[in-house]
């Protein structure tokens, strides 16, 4: 990554700043905001609560009684200089295999997605399983792994009526994105399938096993095998 990814810093209330990376290369933007978030986390400065990096931006949250927005802004600029001078790539990503039962009660939107894309359900599953996914960021709810979606012909429209409850383990797509739901939550994404593995464990820190930069692959399993995996946790490949 070059040292010169341009950035802009926006006020976001009295307790947060939004830092946006403005390169035309989305990969550089992503690296910049995640490295900045790591740098801010590691330096443990007083008054900084933490940083929430996503694709091209990072939200930096702070306690406005302990530190001012202007001080945090100066600090972010220092961080951007520091990470710009770091050589080499980030640490090696870990890889996760995610068994998924597609369609039926596990993936109620599989046929809808296939129909909209003008391809067969088998083709949807093939496109979904043949891609290698990089975890771009942890999102809502509950540290969901946000990933760039499979190579479908069209972006996937969200459901007109979001579901009030989507089960944990639901494997979904929307727009050009893909995700696994770590916990039960409402959702408007199209559910293609479900993994029987446990993703979220609140008795462990971190609560989810992957972090941004890690790699996920989906693998189709039979519905008959779903129960065999129940109770197992999602873990990186050794």
């Amino acid at each position: 990554m070059s040292a010169s990814v341009p950035t802009e810093i926006y006020e976001s209330g009295d307790s947060a700043l939004r830092v946006v990376a403005l390169s035309s290369a989305s990969e550089d933007n992503w690296l910049t905001v995640h490295r900045l978030a790591d740098w801010l986390e590691d330096c443990g400065a007083e008054g900084l609560h933490g940083a929430v990096p996503t694709y091209d931006s990072v939200l930096v949250e702070f306690d406005p009684v302990l530190v001012s927005a202007r001080q945090v802004r100066a600090f972010v600029k220092l961080g951007l200089l520091e990470i710009g001078s770091l050589a080499g790539e980030a640490s090696a990503p870990r890889e996760f295999d995610v068994p998924v039962v597609y369609g039926g009660i596990y993936g109620p939107d599989l046929e809808r997605v296939a129909e909209y894309q003008g391809i067969t359900t088998e083709e949807v599953i093939r496109l979904h399983t043949e891609k290698t996914y990089t975890v771009r960021c942890l999102g809502a709810p509950a540290g969901s792994p946000m990933m760039d979606g499979p190579a479908f012909p069209q972006p996937v429209p969200r459901l007109k009526d979001p579901r009030l409850s989507v089960p944990a383990g639901a494997v979904s797509v929307a727009g050009r994105q893909a995700v696994i739901a770590p916990a039960v939550a409402p959702g408007g994404w199209c559910v293609l399938g479900q993994t029987p593995l446990t993703v979220l464990n609140i008795r462990r820190e971190p609560l989810v096993p992957y972090k941004p930069g890690d790699i996920l692959r989906f693998r189709q399993i039979d519905a008959a095998d779903f129960d065999k995996y129940v109770g197992q946790e999602l873990e990186p490949r050794p």
């Binding site: 976001s12 209330g13 307790s15 947060a16 990096p53 694709y55 960021c137 946000m146």
Partner: peptide
């Protein structure tokens, strides 16, 4: 693009 949103948004 999905972004971190502050409390109070």
């Amino acid at each position: 693009l999905s972004r971190g949103v502050p409390v109070g948004a």
